[in-house]
C-alpha cells in the first residue's frame, strides 16, 4: 500500500562503497600500512621497557600533571593490571587509543581552527559532526573492513570517526569564546589574522581545546570493545571473548583494566590542560 516505491538507499550506499573500494584501493592500502606502522611503533616502544619501568613512568607523569592521589591510583592500578596478567593487551589498547587520539588532534585541531574562522565552513561541518557522533559506531565497522581489512587499522579508523568530533567542536568553541574586546585590541594594534590566531586566540583557547582532546580520549577508549569486533587486539578482545563464552570473571577483569586505563588517561589529560594555564 505504499504511495511511493521504497527508495533504494541501501543499494546506493553499497554501490558507492564498491566504487570507493574499486577506485581508491591504493590510497586505502597506503593509509593502512601507514597506520599499521605507527601503531606497531607505539606498541614496541611501550613494550620495550619492563612493565615496572613503564608503570614508574606513568606514575611520575601522573604526579607531575596532577596531584599525588592520581599518582597513587595510577601506580596501584597498573600494578593490578600487570598482576592479573593483562599487561600486553593493555599496551595494545593504549596504542590504539593513543593512535586514534593523535590522528584526531592532527586532523581535528586544524579543522576546528578553520571552523572558527569561517562561518560557512562551520555550517558545513556541524551536521557532518552530528552524523559522525550519532550514527551507531558499529555501522562504521562495515566499510572500515572493506577499505582497511581486518585488525587494528579499521578499529582505529572507526575510533577516529567517533572520537574526533569533540576536538573539532571544542577547538572551534574555544577560539570563538575569546572575549570580543581582546580581539578588538589585537586588531587595533594591527595584527594579521595569523598573529591574532597564534598570539591571542589559540593560547586563550588552550583549556577548551584540551577539554576537547580529553573527550576524544574517553570516546576512543569507549570504542575499544567495538574495535575488537573487527579484529583489533587488546583489552576489548578479552572482553568480547568473555562475552561470547559467558565468562563473567574474565569479563570483569578485562573490563576493570579498561576502567583503570580510562581514569588514569582522563585525569592526566585533564590536568595537563589546566597546568599549562
Amino acid at each position: 500500500m505504499q504511495l511511493f516505491p521504497k527508495i533504494p538507499l541501501a543499494d546506493w550506499v553499497d554501490r558507492f562503497v564498491d566504487m570507493l573500494t574499486d577506485n581508491l584501493e591504493p590510497l586505502f592500502d597506503g593509509i593502512t600500512s601507514g597506520i599499521d606502522w605507527f601503531v606497531e611503533g607505539i606498541v614496541s616502544i611501550l613494550a620495550f621497557p619492563p612493565a615496572l619501568v613503564l608503570i614508574a613512568i606513568f606514575t611520575i607523569l601522573a604526579w607531575w600533571s596532577s596531584r599525588w592521589p592520581v599518582a597513587i591510583f595510577t601506580f596501584l592500578g597498573l600494578l593490578l593490571i600487570d598482576n592479573l596478567g593483562y599487561w600486553d593487551p593493555t599496551l595494545d589498547t593504549l596504542a590504539l587509543v593513543l593512535t586514534s587520539v593523535i590522528i584526531s588532534i592532527i586532523l581535528g585541531v586544524p579543522l576546528g581552527i578553520w571552523a572558527s574562522q569561517s562561518d560557512r565552513f562551520r555550517g558545513i561541518i556541524t551536521p557532518i559532526l552530528d552524523f559522525m557522533q550519532t550514527m551507531p559506531a558499529f555501522v562504521y565497522l562495515i566499510p572500515a573492513i572493506l577499505f582497511f581489512g581486518i585488525g587494528m587499522v579499521p578499529g582505529i579508523i572507526a575510533s577516529v570517526i567517533f572520537a574526533m568530533p569533540p576536538t573539532i567542536r571544542l577547538t572551534n568553541l574555544g577560539i570563538r569564546q575569546v572575549p570580543e574586546d581582546l580581539i578588538e585590541a589585537s586588531n587595533a594594534f594591527g595584527s594579521t589574522t595569523k598573529q591574532k590566531l597564534f598570539k591571542i586566540q589559540l593560547p586563550l583557547a588552550t583549556p577548551t581545546i584540551m577539554a576537547g582532546i580529553n573527550q576524544s580520549i574517553m570516546l576512543s577508549l569507549s570504542m575499544v570493545v567495538i574495535a575488537s569486533l573487527v579484529g583489533a587486539p587488546g583489552l576489548g578482545a578479552d572482553v568480547y571473548r568473555a562475552v561470547t563464552q559467558i565468562k563473567v570473571g574474565i569479563g570483569f577483569e578485562a573490563g576493570l583494566a579498561i576502567v583503570i586505563l580510562a581514569i588514569m588517561l582522563d585525569r592526566i589529560s585533564q590536568n595537563i590542560g589546566k597546568t599549562k594555564n
Partner: peptide, 12 residues
Amino acid sequence: SMVFQRFALFPH
C-alpha cells in the same frame, strides 16, 4: 593606538 574601557589586556 587604542585604550579600551575594560582594559582588554591579554590575560595570558
